[in-house]
Design a protein around this nucleic acid. Structure first.
Lengths: 240, 240
DNA sequence: ATTGCTCCTTGACCGATGTCAATTGAGTGG
DNA sequence: CCACTCAATTGACATCGGTCAAGGAGCAAT
């Protein structure tokens, strides 16, 4: 039995994957649906597989001794997670949990490891992917140091906004406000208040998870002054 | 004329460097002393070279439109910087400045690029290095979200502490307190006050940049409770 | 010793965010 | 339709960290 693995190509990382890798993956891959709150693995688990998201959202996080949770990333369709265990003595460096029902492909890490070791083009792509992630993390640190809560939310929204429309823009939050809050490193209460402040400043309309704004520039003026990249930011990727 | 490039081997990244790379590097490398405050390059400069630190400290940072500065990293002997430009369309993703007199080797980026593309072992080491950096960044984000100022300082000190001694420990700050503060994402005033609080809590003795502590455990108890890794942290690297 | 410099510390104050508690609102299952 | 649950909001308050301003400490040059 073998699965069609064409969907892997939706992630640029796999554009130079070798026929052998695709063949092996096709034989070894398992594609399944998972319920909300399903835990794929927890921090420091022994790693056998990495995961490719076909559908849905997955949160990556770590927990401290005293019970708090830090979000590492929140990923969706086309992204992979758990692959970094290759470089971490085969232990996952974070925990992973479905935040809504999702469809996930499970792939043996060994295949990825072999591909990296034998296919130089693939290795280069992998490095590119890691570099992109690094840029993202660097900016994340910068934002948390220099932007206040409303600005961070503004920046987050800008990444979601469809820039094609130069008139009004409609932004749809991809998941719970609670989750957006922790993604941005703030409490839900702070998020709620900060979003209100942002509304005052930019005249946006908020209804549930849907946000309408007629002048995108008001938002960039407000958020991007405390950032070292100028809008439009050239790296809109999440996860890898 | 050719330089001895053996010193590169002090960075694990170069342990599998090809003879050809070392030979080319030897011919193309330039080793020089730079004064404090020398600027190697600024964010988004066109990149020709990467840099290897033989001696001294270098800060990597980015600046926002409104003039604030975010420290990306602070590196010292054995570390390289500027190499990520390879993956950033040949533009440096941050600025770099000497924070004290240093001795730096300048090496053409092309050599590194060629080596990555042709020497698979080297590529793997490079990925390992990038992964290590990623882990560090992830934890940095976590710390800024979950630890308060005194805890962050404590964690920083623990990384500097020589664990061999199980009796008293002496820790020497590697550079100015002002710089430590910005490295930890806080104001100098906050740093000063937070260090005092840490002193109260753990009974450490502070004289200038030298800190003495007879019981390391007091420090770990205080700092590591708000962290997801347990002491001793397994990744004490800065930069790469 | 004096001057001037920079780093560092301290105090007073304020704004931003976290915390705790109460309330509202939306969605679900009976 | 009602009860239940959980997300989201709001208010009151505490805490933390940032800001501004004023010393003090260390150090180099004179």
């Amino acid at each position: 039995m073998s699965e069609n693995v064409e969907f892997l190509k939706t992630n640029a990382l796999f554009k130079n994957a070798s026929p052998q890798f695709l063949k092996d993956a096709s034989a070894a891959i398992s594609v399944k649906r998972f319920d909300k709150n399903f835990v794929f693995f927890i921090n420091s688990d022994e790693a056998q597989s990495f995961y490719f998201i076909k559908q849905g959202w997955v949160k990556l996080f770590r927990e401290t001794l005293d019970g708090s949770q830090a979000i590492v990333d929140i990923c969706t369709g086309g992204h992979i997670f758990g692959e970094t265990a290759i470089f971490e003595n085969n232990q996952y460096p974070y925990s992973a949990e479905a935040v809504e029902p999702c469809e996930i492909a499970t792939i043996p890490l060994d295949l990825l490891k072999t591909e990296i070791e034998t296919n130089n083009k693939f290795a280069l792509d992998m490095m590119g992917s890691m570099a992109r992630y690094r840029r993202q993390q660097d900016r994340e640190i910068e934002h948390r140091a220099l932007q206040n809560a409303p600005q961070r939310i503004g920046c987050f929204l800008l990444r979601l906004a469809d820039q094609t429309a130069d008139g009004g823009v409609t932004i749809q939050l991809p998941y719970d406000k609670m989750l957006v809050a922790s993604r941005l490193g703030m409490q839900p209460e702070t998020f709620s208040r900060a979003l209100n402040k942002l509304k005052e400043k930019t005249g946006m309309e908020i209804k549930g998870g849907t946000i309408k704004l007629d002048d995108l520039e008001k938002l960039t003026d407000f958020s991007c002054s405390a950032c070292s990249s100028s809008f439009p930011c050239n790296d809109l990727q999440s996860c890898k």
